[in-house]
C-alpha cells in the first residue's frame, strides 16, 4: 500500500460517518496532499461507494480543488468590487512582476476585509491596506 492510499484511507475513515461526507473529505485531501488528483478521486469513490464520475464532477466544480499539486507559495489577491474601488487593479502588476515564476498569484473574490482593501491572503494570514510597495514586499516574502 502506498502512502497516499493510507492517508486517504485515514481521511475517509475520519469523515465516513458524517451526513454528506464528500466535501469534508475533499477539503482534507486538498489540505494534506495539495491536490485532488485522479488517483485520489478513484480511491475516494471506492471508499464512499460512488462512481468516479460523481467524485470527479464534484472535484471539478469547486475552485479550491486542484488537479495537480503546486509547490510554489501562493498569494491570493482579492479583486472583487470593494478592493477594486480601493485600487487593487493599479497594483496587481506589481504583484505579478514580483512573483515571476517563483510565486503563484491567485485571484479570490472577497476575503471579507472590504473597508480596508486591497486585501490578500497567504496561508491563514490576512493582509490589508496594501499599496504597490506593500504587495511587492508581501509577494517577495511569500
Amino acid at each position: 500500500m502506498s502512502d497516499k492510499s493510507e492517508i486517504l484511507g485515514e481521511i475517509i475513515a475520519r469523515h465516513h460517518h458524517r451526513e454528506g461526507p464528500l466535501l469534508p473529505i475533499l477539503n482534507d485531501v486538498q489540505a494534506e496532499l495539495g491536490c485532488v488528483d485522479a488517483e485520489s478521486e478513484a480511491l475516494i469513490a471506492k471508499g464512499l461507494n460512488l462512481s468516479r464520475a460523481d467524485v470527479h464532477g464534484v472535484v471539478s466544480f469547486y475552485h479550491d480543488y486542484k488537479t495537480e499539486a503546486d509547490a510554489r507559495p501562493v498569494v491570493q489577491v482579492c479583486r472583487a468590487e470593494a478592493c477594486k474601488a480601493r485600487g487593487v487593479e493599479a497594483i496587481i502588476d506589481n504583484a505579478t512582476r514580483a512573483a515571476g515564476e517563483r510565486v503563484k498569484i491567485e485571484t479570490v473574490y472577497c476575503l471579507g476585509l472590504c473597508s480596508a482593501g486591497p486585501a490578500a491572503r497567504t496561508g491563514d494570514d490576512l493582509h490589508i491596506r496594501l499599496d504597490a510597495e506593500g504587495i511587492t514586499k508581501l509577494v517577495e516574502d511569500a
Binding site: 458524517r18 466535501l23 469534508p24 477539503n27 486538498q30 469547486y62 475552485h63 479550491d64 480543488y65
Partner: peptide
C-alpha cells in the same frame, strides 16, 4: 451543531 467548510464556490 457542526461547521461545514465550503470550497470556494460563490
Amino acid at each position: 451543531c457542526e461547521v461545514r467548510v465550503g470550497a470556494g464556490a460563490y
